[in-house]
Design a binder for these strands. Structure first.
Lengths: 217, 217
DNA sequence: CACAAAATGTAATCCAGCCGACAAAATGGA
DNA sequence: TCCATTTTGTCGGCTGGATTACATTTTGTG
């Protein structure tokens, strides 16, 4: 998908400052001014909104190599529509709007790539909508675990993805719009079934082929 | 949101050919070659996928002034991931990939605007995901009717949107991931409630304020 | 090490909304 | 105008999964 080049990263490093956020820290939140974009160097970030009754609803998870906070800046919206929170210890580049827009002008191939990036994200979001309509909870959970493993893990020799995911059931529930208790029992089913492997409270292995059996279509 | 200029439309007219599709006609479908983008001059188009068991799942509805078929072309995907079908009599410009990409190079402000467009669509899709998680069926239906009215209707003197929507319950059901029968009774509730007005089988008026009462958050 | 806080497991209850089945109404061709 | 086809209305039964309510385990912290 989207891959940043050496040159671009160098440019980014010059116009940004690096910040580390500990797990649980909020990077930006709804209705703050949207004056910067962020580039994730390491760690996972969840994009979410807090509802009036206090629940959290996540619409995406972003991984190392992803930009976040892009949509508001590119759409020229003044305020953040979603919040972003570090799901573990996260290292991030902060890039000010003006610098970022200057970069877009000066590096036309980067600008071109950005169109592709937004396009990829749109397709991804549409697929999420599709999956929500098509799949019952188990399917959505399977899809989520699969994508998380693919994006955050290293593919090893056999077809089991080695990974290191420390994510609570509550967080998973927010992403697929479900209840924590339901996730609890489903995860146990997946465990028995060999679709996922735990080590303590950390997911360390994911079997794509077995997981896919839970997914509709 | 996205507004095309006189100049851009003129340019588009030169590199495109206009085609009219009668209601129900398929404009492109899944796994066809993705060699062109389309610009809707009039009419509504649904973007959907047919599942293995024959059901249709819609992920978006596009309106006059929208481009369709963009994502595959901009992402450099070879095959269509979704199908597009005329929801009524539709008039469309077909623009070949090469011509479109040439236009992007020659009109940098257009290219810039396209980034904004994709960004807008991404936000829209994320909001759809959010709504799916937050809202039960009535809420989703209300949101759908509201956006359809806002995009396809003319705002009149009072705060009722005058519109002319000929859409079957089946189609509505596909968009919000529900069953036709459920839509049937909900529409009747909305009718009684004064949220929407029918004339025969056509929705001709929508009351945004009343509709919003059905929406969570 | 002890204790509070966070995360998980489990089970009973309940209900929104899907599904099947059918009747009625509207629409559009011939 | 008539008949086939499409679209809509309605109703009961069934079920996935939310909700409530605890018990148990794990984790971090003074």
């Amino acid at each position: 998908m989207f891959q940043i080049t050496e040159g671009e990263l160098k440019y980014l490093n010059e116009i940004s400052s690096e910040i580390k956020y500990p797990k649980g820290q909020i990077i930006f939140s709804t209705s703050q001014k949207a004056n910067e974009v962020y580039y994730i160097k390491s760690g996972l970030v969840k994009i979410y909104r807090t509802t009036s009754d206090g629940r959290q609803v996540s619409v995406a998870i972003r991984y190392p190599g992803d930009f976040i906070g892009l949509a508001e800046v590119l759409s020229n919206i003044n305020e953040r529509e979603y919040s972003a929170e570090a799901m573990d210890n996260v290292s991030i580049l902060i890039i000010w709007k003006d610098g970022f827009k200057k970069m877009l002008c000066e590096m036309p191939e980067f600008s071109e790539k950005l169109i592709r990036l937004m396009s990829d994200r749109l397709r991804e979001a549409q697929n999420t909508i599709y999956d929500f309509i098509m799949n019952p909870i188990q399917g959505r959970l399977a899809i989520l675990l699969l994508t998380m493993a693919e994006r955050a893990g290293d593919k090893s020799e056999d077809d089991i993805i080695r990974v290191r995911l420390r994510v609570t059931q509550e967080e998973l529930a927010c992403v697929i719009g479900s209840a924590r208790q339901t996730i609890s029992s489903l995860l146990n089913l997946l465990k028995e079934d060999g679709s996922i492997q735990y080590e303590g409270r950390e997911i360390v292995g994911v079997n794509p082929n077995k997981l896919k059996l839970w997914i509709q279509e």
